[in-house]
């Protein structure tokens, strides 16, 4: 079980959180203008990297706030945590 540091509440066990999948997949502002291929890409296609992954987490059994996390999917080590709406850090602190 991961130990996740909620930016609002502090370190808590993973069981308090829900993972919301890959981060920075923006909803097209005008979905109606997007073709089927691009829409499918938004809905379903994911980077799924073996390595650093930016992902969304919700402190579901806590403050109910969403935030972003960088995690290495090969080692499961957490590399960084940052607020929703912030862009992915270029050089994550390790």
């Amino acid at each position: 079980m991961l130990l996740i540091t909620c930016p609002y509440c502090g370190a808590r066990p993973e069981s308090e959180f829900r993972c919301g999948g890959e981060a920075h997949i923006a909803r097209p502002p005008q979905p109606g203008n997007v073709d089927d291929t691009a829409w499918a890409d938004y809905l379903f296609y994911r980077t799924n990297p073996k390595g650093v992954h930016a992902e969304r987490w919700l402190h579901a059994h806590g403050c109910q706030r969403w935030f972003n996390m960088l995690r290495d999917t090969a080692s499961d080590q957490v590399i960084g945590i940052y607020a929703m709406g912030k862009s992915r850090p270029d050089r994550p602190k390790t």
Binding site: E14, C19, G21
Partner: peptide, 9 residues
């Protein structure tokens, strides 16, 4: 697990 991982654990 609920998160993407290649860790086999």
């Amino acid at each position: 697990d609920q998160y993407v991982s290649y860790s086999q654990q």
